[in-house]
Design a protein around this nucleic acid. Structure first.
Lengths: 275, 275
DNA sequence: CTAATAGTGTCTATTAGACAGTATGTT
DNA sequence: AACATACTGTCTAATAGACACTATTAG
């Protein structure tokens, strides 16, 4: 069928000629928590933490899932996670990036749904007491071995464990398919979203400045180093770490005292000028 | 509303409670072309090339766009680009990875459409004469300066130029928004897809083995180096290059002669064992 | 004084960049 | 012989890893 003009074409166009489906966005909200130490001298142990919401209806009733919701027909795709973020945290200026789109036919038992996942990074101090009631922060621990990852989440009351396997796809080099091989408390394919976000952050921390979205305005270098360490899941050597971040931070006049040891200078994020 | 069981919930569930929309996938198919040299001694100049399709109906009639199509309600998301790839190239085992999902309200004048873009990498020699009639390979050249990229495409008959600007988003560090600031021959937001794929490939070539999906089974190291050079858009030094790829390739018994200079040994891809 | 973290100097090992050289086919 | 590319040796620069040391506070 050929048309004389775009106007004529659009008049004749019937949107129902094609299959229509629902689209949701799910948001992996990551932050840093610290666990208050009993020994006054010791510094607070830090964790990476993720915000999960308890489902109180079917499907996956009583399981935990990522905050999410349906895309409105009149909103741009990225507006959707922003609206949900505002709902969950009351904050509007949160770092957000798209992760991946999931769309297996049977991923939602209700109907055909494609989900676009996002990752948000936030400084937890900014949203104290702003949480909606069925949401909870879970500390994240993960263990990688060969092609398996075990992720353990803990919110102080409940422990959630799931396992993901990277399997090499046939005929394509270096392309992995992720598969959930153990999971009983997380809804949908959200374990995949959680892990792909953690992997993304683990990579990005090395070549971008995204971490600073999880930091308060003023921070000690020791704290920043601990954040790197929990994200990368390995210890770093002090001098090397300080070399790497040297041109991303600037020293302020402030110090942090009262901890039973040498006070630490407080720094702030500084956009580095050189590449 | 609370339900007694998942079955009861699903019976009562009405998919039309939520907005429904159409979803398409668009595929950036990248490959390597070489331009036959007049001087028998000189080696063929290589280009990165992209497969575009000429639209013969509205919207964007007579503009070029990426091969793509609507997601079928009964196919997994990733099946969709695979089906389109098979249609365009008659090949089934092509490297494919998801790039990004685009979903601005007004990105398609016909209706609300969200598009999931993919990148495919293929060895062009595998699909000689298998092209569908309205498709054409365009050689890619690009120029980066500050926050602008100019991409120039050429298929021998037509030259297409577009320009993209990276603008730093407010309140989030290191997060760019891409914006098309010059384009008159490419349909939809496909310039964004093309550039994000090139950027992705440019990065991935450094830490994965994806290039080998664009190479024939046997190749000379000089050819491989040229492929790196056109993708990265810069010259590499021979010894450094050979060090880097040393454990990704293995020498075969074959050589390439007849070029008026020392014959080159032919190599093949070898999955490297160490990280 | 002690426990604990803050912060620095410096040596070494590894990797990346640069250049110059030798090797070998075709016309 | 001359041209063009194939391929290698080696020096140097830059970066990452490791260790040892000094500094400073609350209790």
């Amino acid at each position: 069928m050929m048309y004389k003009s775009e106007e004529e074409f659009l008049r004749a166009y019937n949107p129902n000629d094609y299959d229509r489906l629902s689209l949701t966005t799910d948001i992996l909200i990551l932050s840093i928590s610290d666990e208050v130490q009993t020994n006054y001298r010791k510094s607070n142990k830090k964790y990476m933490s993720v915000l999960l919401v308890k489902r109180n209806d079917y499907p996956y009733k009583d399981k935990w899932c990522l905050p999410g919701g349906f895309l409105d027909i009149n909103e741009d795709l990225e507006e959707c996670p922003r609206r949900i973020l505002a709902r969950e945290t009351n904050l509007h200026d949160i770092y957000l990036e798209q992760l991946y789109s999931f769309g297996d036919v049977k991923r939602d038992p209700r109907m055909r749904v494609v989900s676009v996942s996002y990752m948000a990074l936030v400084d937890k101090n900014r949203l104290k007491d702003n949480l909606s009631s069925n949401a909870s922060w879970f500390n994240v621990n993960y263990f990688e071995e060969d092609d398996n990852v075990t992720v353990v989440l803990d919110n102080g009351e409940e422990t959630i464990k799931f396992k993901i396997k990277k399997t090499l796809k046939e005929s394509t080099s270096d392309k992995y398919k992720f598969e959930i091989i153990e999971n009983d408390k997380i809804a949908f394919d959200h374990p995949l979203v959680i892990w792909s976000g953690i992997e993304r952050l683990k990579n990005k921390i090395n070549y971008t400045d995204v971490v600073f979205n999880m930091m308060p305005d003023l921070f000690a270098l020791g704290d920043l180093q601990q954040v790197y360490e929990v994200i990368l899941n390995k210890k770093l050597l002090d001098p090397a770490f300080r070399r790497i971040i040297a041109d991303k931070v600037e020293k302020t006049e402030f110090v942090q005292t009262g901890a039973g040891h040498r006070p630490s200078a407080l720094f702030r994020y500084k956009k580095s000028t050189k590449k």
